[in-house]
Each structure stands twice: as C-alpha cells, then as structure tokens.
C-alpha cells in the first residue's frame, strides 16, 4: 500500500513536470500573440483546459472571438460525460463538488479510472487535479516571464508523452472485454473522423462505441 501510494505520487509528479513545460509554452505563445499577461493568467486559472486555451488564443489572434468560445466549448464538451463517469471520485458535499469539478481534466479522470472505486480513487483524482492545476499555473507564469526563450515542447517529445501516459492509464480498464471493444471502436471512429470534423467533435463521436455494449445489455436496462 505504501509503495503503491509512493508510485502514484511519483507518476503524478512526472505528469506535473510535463504540464509545467506545456503551460510555459502556452504562456509564451499567448503573450507573443499579443494577449496581456493578466488575460493569459486569468485564462489558465478560470478555464484550466489546455487544448481549448491554445485554440482560443489562436482564434482571438486572428480576430474571431466568437469562434474562440464556440470551438473551445466544443472541445470541452467531453467534460460532461467525464463528470458523469467519475462523480464518485470527487466525493460528496457541495464544496467538494464545486471545487472538484474545476479540477476535472483528462488526466485526473484517467488516473481515477485506473484505480478501483473508493478512497484510493478519490485520492488519485484530487492529487492529480490539484497537482496539475498548480503545475499549469506555474507553467503559464513561467512562460509569460520567459517569453521566447521557452523551448518548443515538441522538441522534448512531450506531444508523444501525453498520449502514451493516457494509454498506460487506460490499459487496466481495457482488460474488460466490453470496455475494450467500446474504447477501441470509439477511438477508431474518432481518428477516422478527425480530418473531416472540427476539433472536439471526433472525440465525442467515440461515444458511438457504446452501441457495441448497448446491444449486449439485458433488455430490462434499455428504455
């Protein structure tokens, strides 16, 4: 148990380091695009969803604020089904829910889902969420301060690190046959749809994989 907890702390820490680097690249790109520092910090604190922040900065820069909001929200719509799935990891009570919801990001969901329901899953969710929140803000501020001297995170291979980490966290769930079929067919649909649809939509289309499991549900469960 001790070892498991230490391993979890180390894993989340490693992810935190990578998130600081990506946050720094966000901060640097955002100020280089002409956004004032206060707005960049506000975005990281209030939105706290990296993909949509990069996208919003790009669309604000080309003078399309409505698209920035719309595209960002399309990208973040997946948080609703994530919340449904991991509400138990956030815990009971209003303040927990109000704060815990803001910490819902892909990685806190992935770490929580990788562990059995109960106190271990709760701890994993919260420590991942809090660590990544602090890492993202730290990175953003570093990026604003360092500006152009922040290196390209692709040169460090971080763009490969995040999906690989996600796969590692997903593997335990994939041992269940139904979950494996749903997840893999969903991922296939998403990848195939990506060239044709705006960002965010292909990932949501992955939910179509649920049809495979739906067919196998006992009839009483259908409505």
């Amino acid at each position: 148990m001790r070892t498991a907890e230490r391993t979890l702390t180390r894993d989340i820490g490693a992810l935190g380091v990578a998130v600081v680097a990506v946050g720094a690249s966000f901060g640097a790109i955002a100020v280089a695009s002409g956004l004032p520092a206060w707005a960049v910090v506000a975005m990281s604190v209030l939105v706290f969803a990296g993909g949509s922040q990069f996208m919003a900065v790009g669309l604000i820069t080309v003078g399309n604020p409505f698209a920035a909001v719309f595209a960002g929200l399309l990208l973040n719509a997946r948080h609703l089904p994530f919340g449904l799935a991991i509400a138990d990891a956030i815990g009971q009570g209003w303040w927990r829910r109000l704060v815990g919801s803001h910490l819902l990001v892909d990685e806190s969901v992935a770490f929580a889902m990788a562990l059995p329901a109960g106190p271990v899953r709760q701890r994993a969710y919260w420590s991942t969420g809090v660590t990544l929140f602090v890492a993202w803000q730290t990175g953003t501020v570093l990026g604003i301060l360092l500006g152009g001297s922040v290196g390209d995170t692709d040169a460090l291979g971080l763009d490969a690190a995040f999906p690989a980490g996600m796969i590692a966290l997903l593997l335990p769930s994939l041992r269940d046959r139904d979950t494996r079929h749903v997840a893999l067919s969903g991922a296939l649909v998403a990848v195939l749809a990506t060239p044709f649809l705006p960002a965010g939509l292909p990932v949501l289309l992955a939910l179509s994989g649920l049809l495979l499991a739906w067919r196998r549900l006992p009839v009483a469960g259908r409505r």
């Binding site: 996600m166 966290l169 549900l217 469960g221």
Partner: peptide
Amino acid sequence: PEPLRRLLPMAAAALLAALAGTAALTDS
C-alpha cells in the same frame, strides 16, 4: 438503472482512448 450505469465508465474509456488515439496520430 444499473445496466446503464455500467456504461458510464465505458463512455469515459471510449473518450480517453479517442483522446489518446487522435493525439497520437493527428495534429490539427
């Protein structure tokens, strides 16, 4: 109902797998 509740973690797994797949293979 219980069977539908069983689909929720599968939904999360599908979304995470899709995120990993699209992030691994595609860029913009």
